[in-house]
Amino acid sequence: MQPSDATSETLLSPYLGFGLGLRTPHYEQVLQEQPDVDWFEVLSENYMVAGGKPRYYLEAIGERYPLVMHGVSMSIGSTDPLNMEYLRSLKALANAVNPRWISDHICWTSIHGVNSHDLLPLPYTWETVRHVAERVKQVQDFLGRRILLENVSSYLSYRNSEMNEWEFLNAVCDEADCLILLDVNNIYVSARNHGFDPLDYLNVVNPLRVQQIHLAGHSDYGDYVIDTHDHDVPDAVWDLYRETLKRLGPVSSMIERDGNIPTFDELYNELGQARTIADDVLGIDAIPASKRHVFGAAQQAVQEVARV
């Protein structure tokens, strides 16, 4: 099911530019120095608390930067009923944060009420496509907005799979009419672990649905690669980012660092590398950060025209 051009124009939110994952050790610096970062991604679960420092900084930084929310516990692929208590908290947080969008992962994390706290792979079957898409629709109805699903790193595949991961991702997102958060590092990690060509993934993933990109590092053990998100973005992932932008055009991109958190300045410099690559591939990064929102506004105008 390929959406028509007119529909596709209305799918994506305005381009945000280059962002970073907001991390606790950087709260104070971000607030004080207001660095030239276009937007921040916040981890939803960290702010599903009543108050204190997390909520204080979230609110203060949200007044100064566009925010997007990223979660890990929706367990969209589980065969348990949807966790409505979780979704209510997520919606309440979204009402407070007013994020540009909300994302989680195309995976399962819990079954029979037990949470593995891991992003476990799904079998790529048509049964799973229908199951996940149905649940995404329910979540989107409940939240009143489209969500983004992120591809996860995986270390095994199932015997009963009927298609490739990228075909599965497209099928779920088309069926559910949801969007994609493409983690370029996760594509690289899974490609190494399963022996596929990452370009096969990039050539097929539906460019009309990719709203956001994650860039991250991993741990390479030779025979296999573990997605640790605790290293700098390596050259192989930068190369793949370049290939991604060639195929998708401008997509809001950010560095996602989950462990071994460096100084804010180091992450900021790393983000500069993403800007340089985007500039090189697309030429849009020549637009200064302050004007890049104008680009977003122009894109929105195009969308509004398309809606009419």
Binding site: Y155, S157, Y158, S161, N193, G195, D223, Y224
Partner: peptide
């Protein structure tokens, strides 16, 4: 349930999880 793939053996893939 787990596929035998090139490279790492299936049990080792499970051990990672």
């Amino acid at each position: 349930w787990v596929d035998d793939q090139h490279g790492l053996a299936a049990p080792q893939r499970l051990h990672i999880y």
